[in-house]
Each structure stands twice: as structure tokens, then as C-alpha cells.
Design a protein around this nucleic acid. Sequence first.
DNA 1: CTTTAGTAGACTATTTTGGTCTATTAAGGA
DNA 2: TCCTTAATAGACCAAAATAGTCTACTAAAG
Lengths: 140, 140
Amino acid sequence: MSLITTRSRYGLRLLIELADRAGSAPIDLGSVARNQDIPELYLSKLAATLKAAGVLRSERGAKGGYRLARRPEDISILSVVEALEGRSSLLECTDDPAICARSGECRTLPVWSGLDKAINDYLRGVSLADAAVAVIDYSI
Amino acid sequence: MSLITTRSRYGLRLLIELADRAGSAPIDLGSVARNQDIPELYLSKLAATLKAAGVLRSERGAKGGYRLARRPEDISILSVVEALEGRSSLLECTDDPAICARSGECRTLPVWSGLDKAINDYLRGVSLADAAVAVIDYSI
DNA sequence: CTTTAGTAGACTATTTTGGTCTATTAAGGA
DNA sequence: TCCTTAATAGACCAAAATAGTCTACTAAAG
Ligand code: SF4
Ligand code: SF4
């Protein structure tokens, strides 16, 4: 049971808080780490990864911090999970059949490819904006 | 990247071979291990797990082996994956919100619950019979 | 020129994965 | 009755991934 590890879980909580507190000033990770009860040094690595993936922008020095690089509606959860889990697909062979000698006649590969597609379709269809308002949707 | 580990991958290949070679006699794991190039001792543990889950039946002693406990159409891939990965859901909290103090107001939980549902819906909808004929479907 | 905060990268502990080994039990056949 | 085959049970183990931690450094505000 992984696929969604603490990297994605912490990362999404970071993004939702950045979306909530978005404004003129960037938000420092220390405050997010305290609010969300996530180890700050660990969170800083996740933020760096999300920056490298183009999801976040940062400002250094005092009063620095992070902000979203795009609008919440334009950030898919798929891009967040792919960046943080560092994976392209569920199994190597669904992406690149050449890595397995059996892939030509493999009867199980279509099953796993289908699962991979189901997962990616779902995650692609949910944006940070959807996630950020989820609790409100549920309270109607 | 796990969720589908070698346990599920090897296990499904075992089940497909059992479905293919189904007949009056049970099939010994040694021959499956050789055909599929899977370590026999590891495969024997997977088979034992699938037996415990009610997916397989076994006969001991010489000329013994394993056979499917039900028809391939009546074995969902979900039941196979759940048995072999030993999981009930993607995250503990989607099953039992009480384990996390934040679950009450958690904004990320609905996202992961939705993913869990997408995965389970897909796996529940594919049977061993579907998987066993997959290569034929693709060659039409 | 001090404080705050991101950046870079080595390092570590714990858990999970992917096995292996040994010994035992049950059934078939000579 | 013995020998062989094959499942069963469970301890054991090495490698990889996960979830951090630590140290040193750089950039900007005041
Ligand atoms: S055996 Fe099939 S599912 Fe497994 S790695 Fe090879 S192609 Fe992929
Ligand atoms: S913070 Fe949310 S997603 Fe994470 S374990 Fe708690 S309830 Fe689940």
C-alpha cells in the first residue's frame, strides 16, 4: 500500500494551505509546517520538488516563502502526485514494454494498463481548486 | 510506486495459468514456477495466501497441486489484489477516519477517497476471465 | 550586519519488499 | 511398507523504499 505516500499527502496539504492563504506576500514554510504538523525540514524538500516541477514559485531571504505558480484551477492533482512520487506510471512495463521480455505475450499487462489509466484519469480530472473547496462541497 | 507489487503480478500470472490449464487434475506449482519464471518458494507463499482467501483450492501429496476455487468469471481482480497486498484501501483513513485526528476537517481526504473508489471500481469490474482472454481481445 | 528563510546534499532509522531455508504433513505408487 | 512428490508452516534474510534529519550555504529584508 503506497502509490500515495506521505510525500503526496503532505504535499497536497501544503498546496491547499498556500491556496487558502494566497495574497500579495509569499508564505513561509515554517508556518505551514506548524499549522499542518509536518516536519519542516521534510516539507522543505517536498516544496523544492514542487518548485522544480513548476507548481510553486519561491522568494528567498527574510519575508520570503512560497506561492502557487499557477491558479488552483490550473494545477491538477496528477501533476502534484507525479512530481512528488517521481513516477510516470503504475508499472514500468505499461510505459515502456521493452523493459520486460514477456510484454509481447503478457496477459496481465492489459489489466495493469487499464488500472494505470483509471488512476491517471481520476487524478487528471481533479484540480487543486476542486480539492481546496472539497470540505465546503461536503457541508452543503 | 507500489500498490501492485510482485505479489499481485506473480499471483495473477499464476491464476491465468491455472485458468488455462484447468481440467480434471490439479496443477503443481513447480510447473507454473518454471513456465512463468517465478521463484517456486515465493510462489508457494502467494498460493497459500490465495487459498486462505478462498480463491484457490489445493490437493496435497503426489499428483497434488492447485486449482481455482471458482469459475474465472466469478473471481474479481480486486479480490486477488486485496488478498495478496493485504490491504483494504489506499489510505487507512479512508477506511477508518478515527485513526487520524485531522480527518474531521481534512480537505485532502475526499481526494484520496475518490481515488480509492476509482481504483476499487476498476479492479472490481475486471474478472479473471476478462484477464485470461485479454490477449485474444487485443488481437482481433 | 544580523535575522529570516530558501537551497543543496549527505546521512540515518524504520518499514516493506522480495525473497530463502528448514522442517513437516499428506497422498500416490512400487 | 517405503519412497517420492507436493503442499504447509514459519523463521529467517538482503535489498530497496520511505520518512525523516543534519549541516552548511546563499539570498534578501531591515
Ligand atoms: S510480466 Fe507482464 S505485467 Fe509483468 S513486467 Fe512483464 S509485461 Fe509487465
Ligand atoms: S490528514 Fe487527511 S488524508 Fe492524511 S491521514 Fe489524516 S484524514 Fe487521512
